[in-house]
Design a protein around this nucleic acid. Structure first.
Lengths: 344, 344
DNA sequence: CTTCCATGAGAAAACGATTTCTCAACCGTG
DNA sequence: CACGGTTGAGAAATCGTTTTCTCATGGAAG
């Protein structure tokens, strides 16, 4: 007679099995010892009635819902996709689900999104590369437990997992320097991005290592278009003697590569080009792109590992900094004889 | 003295404001009319105490948690990423969050993942391209409300949003035929994938349209590697007279393109190559890849629109089939004189 | 043969909201 | 002036679990 058949609850199971609710709960959660006979009856009743515990009710009493949230600036960035995938798979294995929130590159809404997401989740993974450090430190205190991704943060109880961009860039410059390049262009990422600052720090360090090295920084961006759009400026730099270009990431480098091909500029003959992140497409471009490989999935898994101990009440402050691995491909090569000299 | 400061509840707010819980609830949810004086007192108390309603408690009583789940076979596929992004942004605007579950291409676990996800969410978005139709029909009945993505399904109350792959392939063949191609290779996707079946249906239709057309189907896959690995077979087909290749999707086509360049095969001089999906990278390859564009973000938004009416109790059966748009780029060209003839 | 503890199961109290009842006050109407 | 119908607010029921109390039972130790 009821409009919709009411859902099966623990009370129904208890009645059907002839035991108390408490026993049903104990059997289902494996708490304490219970009479095998009772356990059997409960399981039978559960199966017969098709009972499924209400997660909402459980959340209410336990204060946790086995869900974590991940805040990313842009779901279309291969780096975050890889991390998300690794995180999702690792968390799944422990019975946790991942809720994802894309702030669509609007740094100003990151805080609100994070706070809202935290209300639905037991913990947060935060990718907020643009947020000022002071604000971020304030935010993590409010949303803990939380793991910060892709930027360092000195806050008690907040582990972070990231990539050593400075070191990576330095390694990449080593490679180019060894090939004879002495004047290098860096197509910068978003100015406010922490990881861009890190890269520039790496460049500065490299300049100290190699006094003979000259680095020219051009404004860029973080996406394919940005790389393509910078081609003109890059060629101008080449005319000033530059022989190699470092892109902020693979997207920028691939965009540039494409436009250079259109313009008939030979890579690496006239100009060497390298990227960062080793996105899946890097090895499939023409020429294949030299890049710094970062283990995206592994990063996501490590993030989960830290978050898991935090959620369990532990105090995992161990932070993790991956050193990217150089993947030499055909887009970088020895500087051509005669090139790299500034025309008089 | 308590270990951790207990959270602020509606009871605290009521007491602090000197009104009943019911009134607090009414004020906060805008139900019925309430005395402005009371409303003021409530708001003041809320602000002062920093009260935030418990979503778990609300879920329990309302039976909904304003979260939807999206099941995808592979988060690294640009198509699903785009849909996910569009869905997330659209749902966000209506106060819904998206929980994502990656089945990691294991078709056999799709059902379990979907059922589990449904328990946490008010509704589901299902991408299960490999699941047998009968099983899928059975599944959607259990997890409704649900919207199915990227495959058609004739089930009551289950709208679906997809891409007209058959039509798209036909349009693509039109393009190639007009360029003079008469023998075309299709690098197939996963055999069990519904969207692959649709594409092959499109090929069959095209063959009827153009009696002079010959189509050769080669086993492929859905990822970059698959395209690269198929290069040998493609060249063999070329030697049998084929002049153009259709990849299952852009990834396959880009992988192939890369390997062909390595092998010194000129595209489109010796062989035309086209993809499907118009992934962001398609326009940036060398040569830029001709592809069929599908509005990924728009698709996601439309999925949400349907799911939203379903969740609200509506009965939106209106299904949606996007016709892909042809993006002609440099990877396809007129068949070269002398090519395309089967060597004696 | 008591006494004391551990063991295990049922009764009842959280968990923190929404929503239904219930009832007083107030309005306009006959 | 009496009466039916709104209106608005508080009391209490409800959502479906987990967890704490409480208490009977049985075995071991004295």
């Amino acid at each position: 007679m009821s409009e919709r058949t009411r859902q099966v609850t623990i009370v129904d199971v208890a009645r059907h099995a002839g035991v108390s609710q408490a026993s049903v709960s104990r059997v289902l959660n494996g708490k304490a010892n219970v009479d095998p006979a009772i356990a059997g009856a409960v399981h039978a009743a559960v199966a017969e009635l098709g009972y499924e515990p209400s997660l909402a009710a459980r959340s209410l009493v336990q204060g946790r819902n086995h869900t974590i949230g991940m805040i990313v600036p842009d779901l279309e960035n291969p780096l975050f996709q890889g991390i998300l995938k690794g995180l999702t798979l690792a968390a799944d294995a422990d019975g946790y689900r991942v809720l994802v929130a894309d702030t669509d590159e609007r740094a100003e809404s990151e805080e609100a999104v994070a706070l809202e997401a935290r209300r639905r989740c037991d913990a947060l993974v935060l990718c907020a590369p643009r947020m000022p450090e002071a604000k971020l430190r304030q935010l993590v205190a409010r949303v803990a437990p939380v793991v910060v991704v892709n930027r360092s943060l000195d806050a008690a109880g907040v582990p972070w997992v990231g990539v050593d961009y400075a070191r990576g860039i330095h390694d990449l410059v080593d490679h180019l320097f060894a090939l004879g390049h002495r004047r290098i262009v860096y197509l910068a990422g978003p100015a406010s991005s922490v990881s861009n600052v890190e890269r520039e720090r790496g460049l500065a360090a490299a300049r100290e290592t190699f006094p003979a090295l000259e680095v020219e920084i051009l404004p860029g961006g973080s996406r394919l278009d940005d790389g393509a759009d910078a081609a003109g400026a890059v060629l101008a730099a080449r005319d000033r003697g530059a022989t190699a270009v470092l892109g902020f990431n693979d997207l920028v480098a691939l965009g540039l590569l494409h436009r250079l091909a259109e313009l008939g500029v030979s890579v690496p003959g006239e100009l060497s080009v390298a990227g960062f992140d080793d996105s899946p497409f890097a090895r499939y471009s023409t020429p294949p792109l030299t890049s710094m490989s970062v283990p995206r999935g592994e990063l996501g898994a490590q993030v989960w590992q830290r978050l898991a101990t935090l959620v369990a009440g532990g105090r995992s402050e161990h932070t993790l900094l991956y050193r990217p691995r150089l993947e030499v491909r055909a887009s970088t090569g020895p500087v051509r004889v005669g090139a790299g000299t500034v025309p008089a």
